[in-house]
């Protein structure tokens, strides 16, 4: 009966909205989120930002110093990502259905990648800081471990999704394992893998800010210093420089993707 459909749809909708509402109320309660302050803070933040959060000429004097720290952070992010990508590519060959040695190696690699990926970046940073103290190494390793987990999984999916047909054909010609990897698997998958690599660099530069804040290094720490000493003009300059860097890198990545994919 047509009426039933409408009744059922209405009931489903009602249940959906009620459960969302209940979860929302529960979340607001346990997190002590202040709904009113939440809304007013947005307006207040923008009003405050317009008055205080822009670079003045004192801040511009700090630009070379800020750029130096930013450059350091970008370098660290790229180095962490590329090294992680090399390890991840090896792991992906062991982990993918197409290229693995056996089912066990695949399960082990996937499990390892999952652990590395799911331990949050801050946990890596905090754990590493105990031994490596407040140095760039801490941030570098934290980004490395997180990227390694993420890229291993992304690469495995890329290889799994690529067609098996060419691998079969090369096997039939008598080609060896490495010839198949380098002549069939990599040529098919490299563009997608490079695309993931670029995505990871982009993410890591943003995450490096967070890690730097925690570990007292790089551009994140620079922001934190200005922020905590109420030098908001300088802090705003840091934000603007990060935004420009990220957008430039994203535009470059998109340009590369358009050509290679």
């Amino acid at each position: 009966m047509p009426a039933d459909i409408f009744v059922r749809r209405f009931n489903n909708g009602l249940v959906f909205f009620l459960s969302v509402a209940a979860l929302t109320a529960g979340s607001i309660l346990i997190t002590q989120y202040d709904v009113v302050a939440g809304f007013t803070s947005i307006a207040k933040a923008f009003a405050w930002g317009a008055r205080n959060f822009y670079p003045d000429h004192h801040a511009m004097a700090r630009l070379p110093e800020i750029l130096r720290k930013l450059w350091q952070t970008v370098l660290m992010s790229i180095a962490a990502t590329t090294v992680a990508a090399i390890f991840a590519a090896f792991m992906a060959m062991l982990g993918s259905r197409t290229t693995r040695f056996n089912a066990l190696s695949s399960i082990l690699v996937r499990g390892l990648a999952s652990v590395f990926r799911n331990i949050p970046l801050v946990a890596w940073a905090m754990i590493l800081m105990l031994a490596f103290s407040q140095s760039l190494v801490t941030g570098y390793l934290a980004l490395f471990f997180g990227s390694f987990g993420f890229l291993t999984r992304a690469f495995i999916e890329t290889v799994d999704e690529a067609s098996l047909d060419a691998v079969e054909a090369l096997r039939a010609t008598g080609a060896g394992y490495f010839a198949i990897i380098f002549q069939a698997v990599l040529p098919s998958c490299l563009p997608q893998m490079v695309s993931w690599l670029l995505f990871m660099i982009d993410t890591n530069i943003r995450d490096a800010t967070l890690v730097g804040l925690l570990t007292g290094t790089g551009i994140g720490f620079t922001f934190d210093l200005y922020y905590k000493s109420f030098h908001f003009h300088e802090a705003s300059l840091v934000v603007i420089m990060i935004v420009i860097t990220i957008i430039v890198i994203e535009m470059f990545s998109n340009y590369v993707r358009r050509i290679i994919l």
Binding site: A169, L170, G174, A175, F178, A179, F182, Q183
Partner: peptide
């Protein structure tokens, strides 16, 4: 050229 891979050493095959 992939047809020649079966006749090649591991290294030459991998390097194409």
């Amino acid at each position: 050229l992939h047809g020649r891979l079966g006749a090649k050493s591991t290294l030459a095959g991998a390097a194409g």
